[in-house]
Structure formats: C-alpha cells, structure tokens
C-alpha cells in the first residue's frame, strides 16, 4: 500500500491542492484519480482514505464549478464514512455540510436543507449545543432557509448562532458582528426596520468602543454623530455648511468589511426615513474606510 502511510496521503493532498490552486486541473485531476485507484486496490473501496481522496477530488471539481460531479463524489465519500466511522462522526457532519453547500450552489436549497440539518444534529451531539462549529452550521442552515424565504426560521437560527458566538467567543469576536449583520438583513426582508436599525447601531457602537473606549459625551460612535447632524440641520441653516467635526473622525477609523457593510446598510435605513444628512454622514464614512 503505497498510500497507506498518512504522510504520503497528506503530501499527495498538498500537491493536488497546489496544482488546483494554480488552475492546473489537468494535472490535479489525474493525480487524484491515480491515487484513488491505488488506494482502492490496496484498501478496498470502503476505506476512510478513499473517502478522504474522494473529498479532495470533489474540492477540485468544485473549484472548476463542476458541482454535479463533485456532489456525486461526496455522496460516495459520505456512504464510506458512515460505514467506516459511524453515522455520528464529525467527518460525516463535515461531508454532509459540503454536500449541502454544493446543492446550495446549484440553487437546490430544498435538497440541501435536510443535509444541513443532519450535519447540525451530529455536531450538537458530538460537540454540545454551544460549540462554535454548531454556530457555523446554524449559519449555513439560516442561509439555505433565507434563500427559500423562510424568514422565521432564518431568524431563529441566526439568533442561536449569535448566542453561541457571544457566549463562547465574546462580544468582540468578528463572528458576532457578522451574524448580527446577517440577522439584520433577515429583519429587513421581513420589514422589521427598527430591529435591524438596533442591530446595526449595536455593531457600530461595539466596534467603536473596542477601538476608542466607552461611549460618553466626547466619545461617540459615528451613528450618534450622524443623528446629531441630522437633528441640528435646521439650526445650521443660517450658519452655512456643517463644519463641527469634533471627534467623529475617530469613528471612521473603525475599519473592517463588516463595519463598512453596516455603515452602508444603516445609511440606507436613514435614507428610507428621510434622514438624508445622517445617511450622508455614514455613506461618507463608508467610502473613506474602503
């Protein structure tokens, strides 16, 4: 068994990944297929190493957007893993998840959802209900439901994910802001604008506090400045353009893709309410931090 040695399998895996990342699929695919043949000859089809190699080949196909072929391989790998590792093994959950992702990429959300749910059940069973990997699975499930317009379920899954991230990783973990953003998007789709607004403000306040310390009269997150600017616009009508920048430049320095998205989203909400100056303040800030 040339490939029985896990180090050899790993080397081959790295080689395949390297070729695939360079777009050299014409090398990566035959390499995988040859390895599969070797493995099957020495270990038989139902061997965990065969399943791993099938997963590697599936990844190469995924990167070529050949989702159907990739899904076929993952189904095969799934059967092997269930047989050899047991139905509740983390490797089974991971394969189910990736299969769900492939179906999702083909728009088959209905088929993907039960796979994702099974992956969730396994992870909860093996890792406990509050493990960050459970939260990640909840995120995928939420997204699949979102694509089917099942917003109540989406809301429930994101809330649970958020609870896990906040309690296990802390309020400043990037996953918290990301999930709040996703939850806010779900609120918007349901017309729950106030709830979305609250979440966006929480994200911006938290990002600000992490960078500049607690909020007080001299240290305010950008959205407070935006609202103050909006409220004082009538008073300023005689005094010319707004010049009192105070310390709010600070808020613009909080830079991350999530914060940037949040600035734009809250800006759009302000605009919807006719709060144009507040919207502009956030939009300016978003374009600067890009």
């Amino acid at each position: 068994g040339r490939l029985r040695d896990p180090a050899r399998l790993r080397t081959l895996h790295n080689l395949v990944i390297q070729y695939a990342s360079q777009g050299r699929y014409e090398v990566a695919v035959p390499l995988c297929k040859q390895a599969l043949e070797d493995l099957e000859k020495t270990s038989g089809h139902d061997h965990p190493d065969v399943a791993t190699m099938l997963n590697i080949l599936a990844l190469v196909y995924r990167d070529q957007n050949k989702y159907k072929e990739a899904a076929h391989l993952l189904n095969d790998a799934l059967a092997i893993r269930e047989k050899t590792l047991g139905k509740d093994h983390p490797a089974v959950a991971a394969t189910l998840n990736n299969l769900a992702v492939l179906y999702g990429k083909r728009g088959k959300y209905k088929e993907a959802e039960p796979l994702c749910k099974r992956a969730l059940e396994i992870r909860e069973k093996v890792l406990g209900k509050f493990h960050p990997d459970v939260a990640k699975q909840l995120n995928n499930l939420a997204l699949l439901c979102q694509n089917q317009g099942k917003y109540e379920e989406v809301e429930y899954y994101y809330r649970r994910a958020l609870e896990i991230y906040e309690s296990k990783l802390g309020a400043d973990d990037p996953n918290v802001a990301k999930t709040k953003n996703n939850l806010a998007t779900c609120y918007l789709k349901q017309g729950k604008f106030k709830d979305a607004e609250t979440l966006y403000k929480e994200i911006l306040t938290r990002a600000h506090e992490k960078e500049f310390g607690s909020v007080n009269n001299d240290n305010k997150p950008i959205w407070m400045h935006a609202e103050e600017r909006e409220e004082s616009k009538d008073k300023r009508r005689d005094a010319g353009p707004y010049v009192e920048y105070g310390s709010w430049y600070k808020a613009c320095k909080v830079d991350s893709p999530t914060v940037n998205t949040t600035l734009k989203s809250l800006g759009a909400l302000y605009r919807r309410q006719g709060k144009l100056e507040a919207a502009e303040t956030l939009e300016e800030c978003a374009s600067k931090s890009r």
């Binding site: 995924r62 995928n140 998007t185 734009k264």
Partner: peptide, 20 residues
C-alpha cells in the same frame, strides 16, 4: 446596500473533510 450585505453571505465549506 442590502444586496451588498447579502452578497457577503456565502455557504461555508468545511475543509476538515480533507484531513480525516
């Protein structure tokens, strides 16, 4: 803007399938 937000959301692949 909302489109921008949802475009960020993508189903996440689990790379651990390659290490078992």
């Amino acid at each position: 803007d909302q489109q921008g937000a949802s475009r960020q959301q993508q189903l996440e692949w689990d790379d651990s399938t390659l290490t078992y």
